[in-house]
């Protein structure tokens, strides 16, 4: 007996096709290239791409539409174009913009900037906020003396 397919989430198919993955990786390489100066991978790095692929969540439908938009602009897969043509297609994509591209960009950036290598390059500890938290300068509330000196500003009724 065949097993019924699980229904798709309300926000769309969470799985990217192989063709979509190729286009996405090519786009990411143009968007955030690797940098030896800053010791960071590009957004087309395999680990980051794997994170993106499993993180579409509520933006899944928008990501599919944005990649279709990119395919239309590129006349096929972005990955099949030479670098110069890829740059042109990406510039057109960014100029067209739209909510779908914003959503796709959000996914790429959220996965890129939580990568350990990128966080370390930024001087951040690659960890969640809890339980260590952070420390902040307490400051000196004597800085409020001019405000105190000025006196009451609330309005009498």
């Amino acid at each position: 007996m065949s097993k019924a397919a699980a229904p798709l989430p309300a926000w769309g198919d969470p799985i990217l096709s192989d063709a979509e993955k190729r286009s996405l990786a090519a786009l990411c390489a143009r968007m955030i290239p690797a940098s030896a100066e800053f010791k960071v991978p590009g957004a087309d790095d395999a680990l980051i791409q794997a994170d993106i692929a499993k993180s579409l969540d509520r933006d899944a439908a928008a990501v599919h539409r944005a990649l279709a938009q990119l395919e239309r602009i590129s006349g096929g897969s972005l990955a099949d174009l030479d670098i110069e043509k890829q740059e042109e297609s990406c510039a057109t994509l960014r100029a067209e913009g739209g909510a779908d591209l914003t959503a796709l960009g959000r996914i790429i950036l959220q996965c890129y900037y939580r990568d350990d290598r990128v966080m370390i390059s930024l001087g951040m500890e690659p960890r969640p906020p809890f339980p260590k938290g952070h420390t902040l300068p307490q400051g000196d509330w004597a800085l409020l003396d001019p405000v105190r000196k000025r006196g009451k500003i609330w309005r009498e009724v």
Binding site: M31, C90, R94, G105, L109, Y112, Y113, R114
Partner: peptide, 20 residues
């Protein structure tokens, strides 16, 4: 860090490419 990147991406402050 991510919110900064996303908002600056959306506003056009954050370039694509080597300058990023």
């Amino acid at each position: 860090a991510i919110m900064e990147a996303q908002q600056s991406f959306a506003s056009g402050r954050l370039p694509w490419g080597a300058e990023h």
